[in-house]
Simulated scan of single mutants.
Amino acid sequence: MAEGATNRLNLERLIACPKCDAVYEIVEPAPRERAVCARCHTVLIAPRRRAGKQLIAMAVTVLILIVAASVFPFLRIGAGGVHNDSSILDAAFAFSGPLAALSLAVLGFIVVVPMMRLMLLIYVLVPVVRNRPAAPGARAAFRFAESLGPWSMAEIFALGCAVALVKISDLAEVNFGPAFWMFAVLVVMIVVQDTLMCRYSVWKSLET
Rank of each mutant, 00 (worst) to 15 (best):
G52E: 13
A138P: 11
V129W: 11
I66T: 10
A145V: 04
E146M: 14
A140W: 07
D85G: 07
V124T: 12
P98Y: 06
M116C: 13
P133A: 06
E155G: 14
P136F: 08
V67F: 13
F144L: 15
V113G: 04
E155D: 15
R139T: 06
S86W: 05
M116W: 08
V128W: 13
P133W: 09
V106R: 03
P98A: 11
E155W: 13
I156M: 15
R143M: 13
L121N: 07
L125W: 07
L104C: 01
P98W: 12
R76C: 05
F74D: 06
M153L: 15
G78H: 05
F157Q: 09
I64H: 03
S87C: 07
V124E: 12
R117F: 00
V67T: 11
F142E: 00
M115K: 01
I122F: 13
S86G: 02
V106F: 09
S70W: 02
G137N: 04
D85S: 12
Y123K: 13
R50A: 09
G52L: 03
L125P: 12
S147M: 13
A91E: 02
M115Y: 02
R139W: 00
L121G: 10
R143V: 07
A94H: 13
V112I: 15
P114N: 10
P150I: 11
L99N: 03
A68Q: 08
L159D: 09
R49F: 04
G149A: 15
L63D: 02
I56W: 01
A138W: 04
I110H: 04
G80W: 05
R139E: 14
P73S: 09
A100D: 02
I88H: 07
A141D: 07
V71T: 06
L89Q: 11
S152P: 10
I56L: 05
V111F: 05
V128I: 14
V113Y: 08
L89A: 10
P114A: 02
V67Q: 08
P150R: 15
G149W: 07
S96L: 02
A135Y: 08
M116Q: 08
I122T: 10
F109W: 01
A51S: 13
A79D: 02
V112P: 01
R130A: 13
F74E: 01
I110Q: 02
A100G: 03
V67L: 10
G108K: 06
A138T: 01
A140S: 12
G52N: 04
L107H: 09
Y123V: 04
